[in-house]
Design a protein around this nucleic acid. Sequence first.
DNA 1: CTTGACCTTGAAGTTAACTTTAAGGTTATG
DNA 2: CATAACCTTAAAGTTAACTTCAAGGTCAAG
Lengths: 133, 133
Amino acid sequence: MKTFNIGELSNQSGVASHAIRFYERENLMPEPARTQSNYRRYPEDAVARLQFIIHAKQWGFTLDEIRELLMLQDANGDRAEAKRIASEQLEKIRHQIQSLSRIEAVLSKTLEECSGEGPMDGCPIVEAIAQER
Amino acid sequence: MKTFNIGELSNQSGVASHAIRFYERENLMPEPARTQSNYRRYPEDAVARLQFIIHAKQWGFTLDEIRELLMLQDANGDRAEAKRIASEQLEKIRHQIQSLSRIEAVLSKTLEECSGEGPMDGCPIVEAIAQER
DNA sequence: CTTGACCTTGAAGTTAACTTTAAGGTTATG
DNA sequence: CATAACCTTAAAGTTAACTTCAAGGTCAAG
């Protein structure tokens, strides 16, 4: 089977070498085998593991959460745990969408009210922000 | 007219004293008058200025952007500038909502597919994250 | 046999928006 | 007049997720 130096793994995965070593320190990547000269040698499936990390990050998981998911996989743990982590993530995302939507509504309405002409004094944007609630 | 020590201003505004001094260093708050013993004395309108900062933060503006807005107000600058800053903010918020909505859709669908029972091996959540795109 | 492209480690820097710590001076209260 | 509750400054710490730097060892090409 094929093995990679860290630079080759970096090219395959799109994750910088330093970030790979960082993930190792953070226990997201296992310690790989070493050559005689102490170079890291990675098995092929290291690429998939890094891509899992990348995708989970895109979904908004933190490295802490990703570590949890990876540890569950490594231990072939309980699927209920994974579902709990993902459900919490979904909740977070829904909250974010809600609060952003509220802001979007007020901000876009305010922008419509502002002609964009004239001095700051009396500007609807500023007044909307200054507004108490 | 009433004036406040920094602690009183902190109580009025809900912003920690240290944060107020931080805003002063960052040019969000003007340097206030000082007493003989070098204590800061704030005029009443400092409360409104801090509340403007708080609200703008809730709207997702960064301190850099808030500083811009405040400087425009202080200089009674051009309303068009304020509108530009707010429009950019609206764009950012809309982008965030869009990408979060995409994640929400995939994540909630994936969660429905996962019974939450059984071992990690074959868990739909993990497989969805591992998926290439 | 030297040059350049790799690899190693550990430590420090980055960003945002503060908070905490350290080491003191001032003021109000009993 | 002592003590607690304020205030002052500058500097360092916090969090996340890396990146950059420093100082060096290794390896392939010419």
